[in-house]
Design a protein around this nucleic acid. Structure first.
Lengths: 347, 347
DNA sequence: CCCACCCCTGGGAGCGCTCTCAACGCTGTC
DNA sequence: GACAGCGTTGAGAGCGCTCCCAGGGGTGGG
């Protein structure tokens, strides 16, 4: 690999000259070589090799109007992105899939509510071909932004559609939250538990609401004192658990809307000397790598294929881009990924 | 903001026409407006507004040879990126700083040893102006790649320079690992502990070795049975702790090279009924958000400003880019960031 | 009153690439 | 043997922007 003297990379022109062909033919070879006779292909490839030619991305984008990059928009303000392995895993999945299709990943972290302007400008500026977005709250402006920017998007997690029904055209990937919740609560009931409480996630996230719905599906006519609100964080889980114990000292099981909160709840139970699962059985949600199996006792939880979800998101987006380019192919549709109950020791 | 009819954004030409000026003048205004008379500036801005003009990034890059983006290369294979809030926090810091300077972040996750070719091609392809890289192992090819690509780079963590002395030109940002280790061990000794063990990180990472060196600085002539090897993961910490207890049941303190391993060690101590800090005092390293304060007992640890390190990395790189552009300015130099002992309950 | 100088503006070249279109040569067929 | 037809190649026109350079108009000084 020849060292590059800064500021003067070889151009296609140079490759063509060296190979004794036209720029057009050199271009064809560089882009796959279809319709070029073998000997010429070889000559061009040799020239490419010798000169250390690397296509100029900007020039290519200028004419093709494709950037070969997609944005990943993470709108989660502050804390969650830090403590939540969830995102990292999805991103890993996304990265793998994009890489396999020679597409780059531009990370857009939203730095606060005032920052959406910047995101909007960026997405509309033709820097990327499409966008993947996460964690849409009820009033999330991301759907409107991608629509206005005229680029395809795929969401991680079902968006709430109250804002604009037009956004329903955007496909999403989400775990079967409701079904998973049903699975968990059903399991607790099959264990013979009768006073099954729930620690819910934030009301502005559909995953939290779907899990609450699933809980209600099984336990028709739930006593409201059995439901406490949390915020998907360890601390909020602990608080909610304390609150529940205060209100309903008789509870014998808790279905917690995610593992992070469950680990907080577990801590409170331990502090109060309440044995798990004997006195209170606990089921979480997510089967989060570094959490669920590390708690004491290890968490029984609803597992989902997080990295797979990331891959799937990327795949849907790539398909949409392909469709845009070729003008044909099937319209990507939303996918609900299956969940499973992972039995450990807490229930 | 006018909706974009797909595929036909307004060009600078259109803006110029509408404002009744030349394309050159319109360009000047869009780029700051220096040397253009006020009334014309206003006319152009009005036209920009009305047309919803957004500059075409590819065209701009093609002529300026600047992309306004930098790559963040994460060469950590597999597990660590997941479970380690360390990276997320650094990235958050980097993102903040880059955003403040209108620079985009392209995330490059290395998907295995064979993947460096792709990274090399990307960095050399003029997609980005510079690179930030993490977690350089002894045989990490990243330094060579960025050098060959002819783009400035800044490293997170001191690289090991055995491979190529030429890489020493690359600045890095690192915590004062050795000093922090000294701080921790000194503290344990001041507490009256005499048999202070160490759980070390992987030998191919300089941070781990620096922490080991700091430990040795204080405890000259260390008995080798007091040092166990870990891999910066919870599991490896647990294993190392068990090993140490086997070898040296008389130990009365452990300095652990990071919080993740310390939490694993803590678990083992708890399982064996060894009280912390009474029987064995424990000090970690990193003061990792979601770990150090969540353990039982909360971890005394060496704290570093992780997000600040990220910011600093970005700032150094931006300075290097500026220098490249203007041809002047000071050469960025490596920075060692200070650490502090965070006293909690484990020691 | 003229000229030198400066500030502002426009014309135009060209960044490196893709893609259309026409030309070319070759094969196969009647 | 001529011609249709196909596969292969090259010429050239941009993609949208920046930036160099020349020209025009105004100002101030001689």
């Amino acid at each position: 690999m020849p060292e590059q003297s800064p500021g003067s990379r070889p151009t296609l022109e140079a490759v063509a000259a060296r190979a004794g062909v036209s720029r057009a033919t050199a271009s064809r070879v560089v882009n796959g070589g279809d319709g070029v006779r073998k000997p010429l292909v070889d000559k061009v490839l040799k020239a490419v090799e010798e000169l250390g030619y690397i296509p100029n991305h900007a020039a290519r984008t200028l004419v093709t109007r494709r950037t070969g990059a997609v944005a990943v928009v993470i709108a989660e303000p502050e804390t969650r992105f830090f403590s939540d392995p969830f995102f990292s895993q999805q991103i890993r999945g996304i990265s793998k899939e994009l890489t396999a299709h020679d597409t780059q990943l531009v990370l857009l972290l939203v730095e606060g509510p005032g920052d959406f302007d910047r995101i909007a400008r960026y997405l509309a500026g033709g820097h990327v071909d499409g966008a993947l977005a996460f964690s849409l709250h009820t009033d999330d402006p991301v759907p409107a932004i991608t629509r206005r920017a005229g680029i395809p998007a795929v969401y991680g997690g079902r968006p709430s559609w109250t804002a604009d029904p037009g956004d329903q055209a955007v496909p999403y990937v989400d775990a079967d939250n409701r079904g998973g919740a049903r699975l968990a609560v059903q399991y607790l009931r099959d264990l013979g538990r009768r006073r099954i409480a729930h620690i819910a996630g934030p009301a502005d996230q559909t995953s939290a609401m779907d899990r609450l719905d699933g809980y209600r599906d099984v336990l028709l006519d739930v006593d409201p004192t059995l439901v406490a609100d949390g915020a998907f964080t360890v601390e909020s889980g602990a608080r909610a658990m304390a609150e529940l114990l205060e209100r309903r000292p008789d509870l014998d099981a808790v279905f917690v809307a995610n593992d992070l909160m469950a680990s907080g709840a577990l801590r409170v139970l331990r502090e109060r000397g309440i044995s798990v699962p004997e006195q209170v059985a606990l089921v979480g949600f997510d089967d989060m790598d570094s959490v669920a199996s590390e708690t004491d006792p290890p968490l029984t939880t609803v597992g989902q294929e997080i990295e797979g979800q990331g891959r799937l998101m990327a795949r849907l987006l790539l398909r949409a881009l392909d469709r845009e380019r070729t003008g044909s192919g099937d319209v990507p549709e939303s996918v609900i990924t299956p969940v499973t109950l992972v039995r450990r020791a807490s229930a």
